[in-house]
Structures are given as C-alpha cells and as structure tokens.
Amino acid sequence: MNDYYDFISKDFNDKTKAIEYEDVNSLDFYPRAYNVTDEMFKQEIAFPQDIQDTMGLYDLNNIMNNNMKENCGMYDVEEGFIRGNMFPTLFDPYKKLQLKMPSVENEKESLMLEIQKIGFAAKDINLYLDVHPNDNCMIQKFSKYIERLNTLTNEYEQKFGPITLSTPNQSLNDVPWAWNETLSPWERRNK
C-alpha cells in the first residue's frame, strides 16, 4: 500500500528513486491489446542509454552522449517525437509502454510526418526558450528547425496542396481554390 501512495505523491522530476509499480499499476491491470506479447510486456523495455543515465542525475553534462551534445542536450528529432518530449531530463514514461513511430503508407503521409516531427521539435524548443531566453545553442537549433520546416512545408504544398494560408504558395493560384481541395486533418486515412 505504501508504494501506491508513493506513486501518487511522487515528484516526477525526482529521478533518484527507481519506483517499482504495484497494485493499480501492475501488469495484470493493464489491458493487453497493445501489439505486444505477454513475454515482451513483462520484460524491462530497453530505453536508449538516456533513461538509465538519468536515474538520479540532474547534471546535464553527466548524461550527455555525443549525439546529445550536438543537439544542445536534447534528443534528436525522431527520438523526441516518439516520446512527445525533446528533453531527456523531463521524459517520464508511463507504465513501460513501448514507443513507436507512427506508420505511413504513402509519400504524402511520409512527408506530412516529417513536417509534424520538425514542427513539434521547434514547438518544444519555443516553449523552452520562453523561459530560458539566454541559451544560444537552443536559439540556433530553433532557427535551423524552422528553416527545415519551411523547406518541407513548401515541398509538401507543391505536391499535395496548401496546408497554410500564410506562406506564398503557387497552388493557391489555381482554379478552383486549392484550399478547398485539401482534406481537413481530422479525416481518417481510409474514409
């Protein structure tokens, strides 16, 4: 019972404790239909180096490997996107669920996924810079990601129609109006 209350009240930025999930958080409670076998589910999910390294450590210098140093201490774009978090010190997984990249079936979805990845990375840096405006490394990274986002958006819009109305776009010169020709983003893949 004590472990359960520890879980409720834990400061989840405190990575000094490796918390053993019990009771409500036990494997028997969790629905199994998540594409993993029982055996896989019961194994420790091997997160990349960063999670083991961050247990009990706050100092960014200690946990940075070479890749992260180039990325100002952040995950790279792919790893950050599947986690929903660009910052290793803040990442807090739930119940050892597996992380996976969303699947794509054609070039349109693949290009859209690239846009979503880089757009998300830029957004997360944006929020970081609002509170830490003097981080030069992050500022350069943000500009680089925004530039890449623009390139990818232009490429997507040339092939598949406009997704914004605030950037110059040749296809908006077509008749009928191309904005009506692109699908709204809440539609299913196979309608």
Binding site: P31, R83, F87
Partner: peptide
C-alpha cells in the same frame, strides 16, 4: 490510457500525456 485498448488511440494519448508533463 488505462481505459483504452486500441494502440491507435493509446499512441496519441501517450503523446498528449507527455506534453502535459513538459
């Protein structure tokens, strides 16, 4: 996430949960 059984639903929920933490 505890109530969901479909991985296509769980993945965006995981993402959204992580965003709240950030």
């Amino acid at each position: 996430i505890n109530l969901a059984t479909d991985p296509d639903v769980i993945a965006p929920l995981q993402f959204l949960r992580q965003r709240e933490i950030v």
